[in-house]
């Protein structure tokens, strides 16, 4: 009765393992009885934990503002009407509305209309924005024409994509660019999405926007995203529009995904 119990080998022996080259899907994991092998179970748990942490991570708004200001840009804080994270998750409508105080703060900066406002916002992954929100914003601002009147970068807390509408309206900005943390996936918890809206004002729909998603190391790299986004912004300014019509024109040149609705719930 003292025979050693043998357990089948690791899952890289699985006959399907060679097919993993064709898909990211978790195939050929092997099984013990019906159960998931320990390694595969903990791999999954780790990916999910990373995504959960990203949803609930602290938004380092002050650090982002400090980074921007040390590079010579002006930053201003703003908040939606979603007071805390639990409210934010339950009430996307509140995350699309600007708090009264922020409306007043922003309006006081808008003596003259702006050509562009860039918003850096937490969305569903503060992890993403903390990591590369400021860098992408600076990349954009460095690449748009020097003659443009650019608003202070708005660092917004509790934001959904459409918060860029009241922000843009309060600042009287011709174009709003929202850089926002996307809903974390198991494969990546640090993706930033960029949403461009011409003539932002409350009531704009996803069809009025253009979206560039998956901005992260390993996706669209943050250090080159700024140039790409600036190209899209300049094109929107030339044509005087954003959304589906801009896509028709810019699709091939920029590889832009649009309208925003086409990529699903993302951060909205």
């Amino acid at each position: 009765m003292s025979d050693k119990i043998e357990i089948a080998g690791p899952d890289d022996q699985h006959p399907l393992s060679r097919l993993r080259a064709f898909t990211e899907a978790r195939i050929g994991l092997g099984r013990h009885g019906a159960g998931l092998p320990t390694r595969a179970h903990l791999d999954f748990a780790e990916a999910h934990a990373r995504a959960r942490d990203a949803v609930h991570s602290d938004f380092q708004a002050e650090a982002i503002a400090a980074t921007l200001e040390s590079a010579g840009f002006t930053a201003i804080g703003a908040a939606s009407e979603a007071g805390d994270r639990a409210t934010y998750l339950r009430r996307p409508d509140l995350g699309r509305r600007l708090s009264q105080r922020s409306v007043a703060d922003l309006a006081s900066r808008a003596e003259m209309p702006f050509d562009l406002v860039v918003v850096v916002a937490d969305g569903l992954s503060a992890t993403a924005v903390n990591a590369h929100g400021a860098a992408v914003a600076m990349g954009v601002l460095n690449a748009v024409p020097k003659s443009w009147r650019v608003a202070p970068v708005v660092v917004a807390r509790g934001a959904r994509v459409a918060l860029s509408d009241p922000i843009g309206a309060a600042l009287r900005a011709k174009i709003a660019l929202m850089l926002i943390g996307e809903r974390p996936g198991l494969s990546a918890a640090n993706s930033l999405g960029a949403y461009l809206t011409f003539a932002p004002k409350p009531g704009r729909s996803d069809a009025d926007r253009n979206c560039v998603s998956n901005i992260r190391p390993g996706g669209l790299r943050p250090e080159i995203a700024g140039d790409k986004l600036a190209g899209l912004i300049i094109r929107a300014a030339e044509l005087g529009l954003s959304g589906t019509k801009l896509k028709d024109d810019a699709d091939d040149r920029l590889g832009v995904e649009t309208p925003a609705a086409a990529i699903g719930p993302a951060a909205d």
């Binding site: 899907a25 978790r26 195939i27 994991l29 019906a34 159960g35 595969a40 494969s187 699903g264």
Partner: peptide, 25 residues
């Protein structure tokens, strides 16, 4: 039945082949 519960296209988690085998058993 989604391989390893991870739908890599729709980006959400559903039940897996393993889960189905578990509950049948």
């Amino acid at each position: 039945g989604v391989p390893g519960s991870d739908d890599v296209m729709l980006n959400y988690q559903s039940t897996s082949y393993h889960d189905a085998a578990y509950v049948r058993r």
